[in-house]
Write a protein that binds this DNA or RNA. Sequence first.
DNA 1: ATCGAAACTGACCGATTGGTCAAGTATCGA
DNA 2: TCGATACTTGACCAATCGGTCAGTTTCGAT
Lengths: 224, 224
Amino acid sequence: MTQRDVAASVRTDNGNGATRERNEREILAAAERVFANHGYRGASLAAIAAQAGLPKSNLLYYMGSKRGLYVRLLERMMARWNALLDDISAEDDPAEVLEAFIRSKMQLSRRHPEGSRLFAAEILAGAPFLQDYLRGDLRDWVQARAAIFRQWAERGLMDPVDPVWLIFLIWSATQHYADFEAQVLGITDRDALSDADVEEITVFLTRMVLKGCGVAPRADESER
Amino acid sequence: MTQRDVAASVRTDNGNGATRERNEREILAAAERVFANHGYRGASLAAIAAQAGLPKSNLLYYMGSKRGLYVRLLERMMARWNALLDDISAEDDPAEVLEAFIRSKMQLSRRHPEGSRLFAAEILAGAPFLQDYLRGDLRDWVQARAAIFRQWAERGLMDPVDPVWLIFLIWSATQHYADFEAQVLGITDRDALSDADVEEITVFLTRMVLKGCGVAPRADESER
DNA sequence: ATCGAAACTGACCGATTGGTCAAGTATCGA
DNA sequence: TCGATACTTGACCAATCGGTCAGTTTCGAT
């Protein structure tokens, strides 16, 4: 962006790229909802366009094709995911790492429930678009963490549980509140989960996991 | 079943009702696969008919409509689910009950992965067909169990964790291996989960849950 | 004022959707 | 052998699908 362009977009909020940016944001949000509810095949461009308040032709003008739109949404969700995959080392405190892991995963589900459900629908369908990611980057990430968990176990900092099953346990438990939201709300007779609910669940899951695999709680987490 | 139907199926085992039975079984199996992969909207009768090896017209002859077929599959899955919702009382041993709970849920996901994914897709879509079930029978069942868990906690048999979150934890962790099978297999580089894998995961989850909420293991579960 | 590019959209396309229907064939008890 | 019932299926339907395209409007830079 040149300095003049910046000046232009400051001058008027519908400057050069602003229209495109706004419409794309609207389309992506609408598409995420529809794809999350009905999966790739079950989603229709007409439904997405209606949600976005745009003609179908306009939607295709920006996104090119249904497949392109879907892939773009998946990539955005994977980027959010990768953003919280911080590095850890065997020197870190297991309790701190596990709690941060659970908490950040829980917040991702909380902040992007539609994206989480979109991902879930993709996996349910057999991950036709994400095969390479699962067998590549994500597998590497899991194996790296697993190696560190094993070192912790050797040092007696936690029980010698299978690290991969442990990671799956944390993933499933946290993702549940986004993917199965309809079930959670129906059974607990709620309209929505409050921030307090989410915090309570986070604390519950953290305690279950830490105690379950024999990790001593953090120092500042007093017994009660 | 009417009296005439019973008489007919008793008379000859490949008699009148046998053709219907065989075709319906084939159709239901095919439909479960397709609905599980693509959800209600994403599934097409043509795809189901192709999987079942029947013309689409024949499929509709037996099932009446797409909606009717889908509802029938959901009801079949709920029946399987209800079949393992045995009654428990506060006098039972918490460790035994929790282990049986985890084990039977794990086996349900193992034996009927497509049914499990079908259910998951229905919930992902906002449970349009299962709202009443979730807010009725299933809620009652959860609340009944929760009451017993609380009694156990009062008697010091387990930590005073929120029973509902605990039930959701067990549901999500067990269901994960059916619903996210593609992810599990991709990350662990497997073609399928073996019986030994499932047993290992079951033992892992049982130990995590029992230890996590402070339940003493069963007497015959020796320490090692 | 004018020009080029970006944005926009209704009309339209062939393919697929769930579903109907009439015209069969198969199988059975009588 | 015969009528009834269950079963089978290709042809067909209106509606919807993802996508194309030509034509128009909008808008900033000159």
